[in-house]
Design a protein around this nucleic acid. Sequence first.
DNA 1: TTGATAGGCAAGTGAGCACTTGCCTATAGT
DNA 2: ACTATAGGCAAGTGCTCACTTGCCTATCAA
Lengths: 94, 94
Amino acid sequence: MADVFKALDDGTRRLILDELAVRDGQTLFEICSTLVMRHGLGSTRQAISQHLAVLEDAGLVVTERRGRSKFHYFNSGPIAAITQRWPPTRKDAP
Amino acid sequence: MADVFKALDDGTRRLILDELAVRDGQTLFEICSTLVMRHGLGSTRQAISQHLAVLEDAGLVVTERRGRSKFHYFNSGPIAAITQRWPPTRKDAP
DNA sequence: TTGATAGGCAAGTGAGCACTTGCCTATAGT
DNA sequence: ACTATAGGCAAGTGCTCACTTGCCTATCAA
């Protein structure tokens, strides 16, 4: 579970999750160009590839290979586990 | 908002949040002894104090001074902001 | 006032992480 | 077969962070 927090503790990785949440199933090169276009991120391909590996190890991203392409999908399961660990404290009665 | 993820990316700080979620309003020394008792954490008082400062900067902990004591309270607001940023993807229709 | 309690400030150290650089593997098209 | 595309592997570098160490401030009790 510590991998999830480590993965989320990076601005670039959070942007990647944002983009995958908007348009799911992107390849590495698509993510690279999307980050450059919409956020001005000048990261290299290798940097993004390493970020995606971290996200995949944390279970936040699920991949699927077809041919020479690898498609990346956002998985919200680990995010839900966070709120299950610290449920919202309701200080006002409903 | 980046402070929240940085604050959560540490095992000791997550344990502190766990303890405050169980028993709210503890002082620094109470948190220290609780971590030693229930988790075998051998951290010094200064280390815990720095962790609490990080948690407070992130808004995950709210403090209140009375006399020479400082009481710490867990705040779940930033946690809720995380799930608002990445809402659960429902892959099954309700 | 003196001593004890509760906490804060600041410099120094070691380890982990993001990023680059360079080269390599595998699939698709002609 | 040859070239281009899509991605992977690994070493090196700079920077941030957790933790320690030492000293200091403020409140309470005698």
